[in-house]
Amino acid sequence: MSSGRSARLAERGPTGRYPEVPGPVPQTPKLTLRDRISGWDVKFSPYVYIAPFFILFGLVGLFPLLYTGYVSLFDWDLLDETHKFIGFNNYIDLFQDDQFYTTLVNTLSIFLLSSVPQIIIAVLLAALLNTNLRAPTGWRIGVLLPYVASLVALGIIFANLFGPNYGLVNGFLELVGLDRIDWQASRFASHIAIAVMINWRWTGYNALIVLAAMQAIPKDVYEAALIDGASAFRRLVSITLPLLRPTLIFVVMTSTIGGLQVFTEPKLFDSMPGSNNGGSSNQFQTVTLYLYQTGFESQHLGYASAIAWVLFLVIIVIAVINFLLTRRLAGTGEKK
């Protein structure tokens, strides 16, 4: 589809970033073949461009999702060859399943404990990074470092830090005269420990996103405030935060979707190696962990599929709320 003109454009500079000169305007009055091709190009190109995603998604996302929906209507054991159709019984059972509600509450609790402090610290950290630092890039790389940690190492390290008997955290608590905490046994303490694991990994990353948004705030706004004699804290609260709102909502939204599917951290945190129990009484089992355990350990694939679908719908609902909220608060960032 290389028309003469676009070939010339290529000659002008194949790597030229922005063709500044528009070039000769097409002058043909009638619809030529080329125009028609161009019309099809405009009409169908978008679909071609998004096609790879949707084709692949059909394979790795949609097919498993529909398959899961189908399986959820059966009493389907992983290794059985025949499966009994039971309609919506798995869903009915699920809504009466105490463990499901336990895991749902755990998930929400860990999600809140990880996202709220994470965003607050990220904003403060971004505010620190937004000062006039020497070697700013060095500091920024530094805060992003946890992002490259290997998950295997992370599990070993944090299990060790939060060990009830020999852990460094409890050693420290004793040193300053506090009681040691059984990070595994207590429901709330275990949620905190898992949230710390998540926060350690993601705070720096979010701080940089917030920092970016901060730097996009016009400097004269600050200068005016400086002249008015506003304190640094005042400036943060009344100028920076309101302007950060769209970015913060973006961060909240992506972390909602990830946060509601937390799996690896609670799995690694369990003192029983390889366990999917999420603690002795499921005190830190999340929904995905429960779904994984049901499907692969207990091998009740039908029931696990029902959990997956309900979780999917829960996430969709929360994500759609967030999406609408984002659009509303961020204004129309796109042209219709």
Binding site: F53, P64, T68, A308, F312, I315, I316, A319
Partner: peptide, 21 residues
């Protein structure tokens, strides 16, 4: 609609896709 769909796909729990995949 398609874009909303892309976002929705983020919510598909990956763990259960293993067997069909």
């Amino acid at each position: 609609g398609l874009f909303l769909f892309v976002i929705a796909t983020l919510a598909v729990p990956t763990q259960l896709g293993i067997i069909p995949l």
